[in-house]
Design a protein around this nucleic acid. Structure first.
Lengths: 225, 225
DNA sequence: TCGTGCTTCAAACGTATGTTTCAAACAGAC
DNA sequence: GTCTGTTTGAAACATACGTTTGAAGCACGA
């Protein structure tokens, strides 16, 4: 057995199980038996379960954020002095995600679900870890979004970004199931790229919705306080 | 102590703790000590932890789905023979949620977070329970969405509904955290009603986005296969 | 060939969980 | 007051968890 094939087997199994069942609902024993390694190997190689969770994220996120930085560099260079548009920014992100070298066919959707879980499950340590390690590409993306939507107030933009994150994380996280449902109902096959291609226009339209207005059932428009 | 004050105290404590920490991360001992009842009371009154989770949802969801049915009835009556618009449909839903009689000031946001968790945490038993008990108002909502977006192909509509669900569930599931972050950053206070009022236009705009096109980085439009 | 450092292994540790038990306390009807 | 069915209480149950231990296995340079 090569030097530490074990480490990768653990990471693979953990990644998949975490995505399927969440962090607390996945035990080290499930991980090690799926990975076919000894239980103690996790604590030997990673130190703790939390450190394993961090390692799962780091394995994907570190190369991804590098790819993303490059994509943003290219985009900004291509745009010259004017800021990239919303579509271009979103596209740079999804392209980077889709183009990442994948360990297997489920790669990207597994990771989308993990990111969603990281946001959703209140694992304090994980949020801290991600903020410390990957704050830079994240805030760069935020700056690009801000420049691309100058018409929005800071508060509007904040919430709409959360809506985008939600639609993305949720859809990607269950994209396998959703694809299967659609396949059974209509016979239509869908690739992750196609889902992304449908998602981006949805997000862009929502992000650029004309105004945050309350449209009452009667049809009259009422501005939000 | 009244007939079963205990039951309500357990439900109150459980609701709050589940919303704060998730289901698996909340132990019966936390619940019973917060509710100031004996540990065995949960299994005595509810039978199991899962049954308690169901009871927490049922206490809110049963009156809510009745309210929702009425709101849809009124909406369809008011619209006569033409189908309600997308805005009207989404609005009927959020109005029903916001107008529900609340046990306390946090009522609605607690429950929003619980609904988000229900979708997000893969608690099989919960999803089954919700599908069995509340499938009718859900599929009625789906029918209304279909009638309100006749311009969409079935496939487009399918995906865009998933996007809406995602944005909603995700935002709701972390609405407290998101509100706190915004509060700390900008000092802006946000009510659940305001979040909903921002979410609905976002969803409506995304749902009605002009076409599912792929906008490449260069800006050229490429139709999806 | 023998050591040495890294890795694996089976077993155990202590702790926390959901659930059960059974006696005590209680309420209401007679 | 006494009986009866319901509810509470303290304690224990079995199980599962993350983690630790110490011996066995292994690769590889001296």
């Amino acid at each position: 057995m090569a030097q530490s094939d074990t480490v990768d087997r653990i990471l693979d199994a953990a990644e998949e199980l975490f995505a399927e069942r969440g962090f607390s609902e996945t035990s080290l024993r499930m991980i090690t038996s799926k990975a076919k390694v000894n239980l103690a190997a996790v604590n030997y190689h990673f130190g703790s379960k939390n450190a394993l969770i961090h390692a799962v994220f780091a394995r994907f996120l570190t190369p991804f954020s590098a790819t993303l930085e490059k994509a943003f560099d290219e985009l900004e260079e291509r745009c010259g002095d004017q800021p990239p548009t919303l579509n271009q920014t979103l596209w740079a992100l999804t392209e980077s995600a889709v183009r990442m070298p994948q360990r297997n066919e489920k790669g990207i959707s597994i990771f989308m679900r993990l990111l969603g879980l990281a946001y959703t499950q209140s694992q304090g340590h994980l949020r801290k870890f991600l903020e410390q390690e990957y704050s830079e590409p994240f805030s760069r993306f935020m700056r690009l979004l801000k420049a691309a939507t100058p018409q929005l107030s800071a508060v509007d933009r904040y919430w709409r970004i959360q809506f985008m994150l939600g639609a993305t994380a949720f859809t990607m996280s269950s994209s396998d199931a959703l694809r299967d449902i659609l396949q059974n109902k209509t016979g239509v096959e869908t690739s992750v790229q196609e889902i992304a291609a449908r998602l981006v226009p949805f997000l862009a339209a929502g992000m650029q919705a004309e105004d945050t207005l309350l449209v009452s059932p009667a049809g009259s428009k009422v501005p939000v306080a």
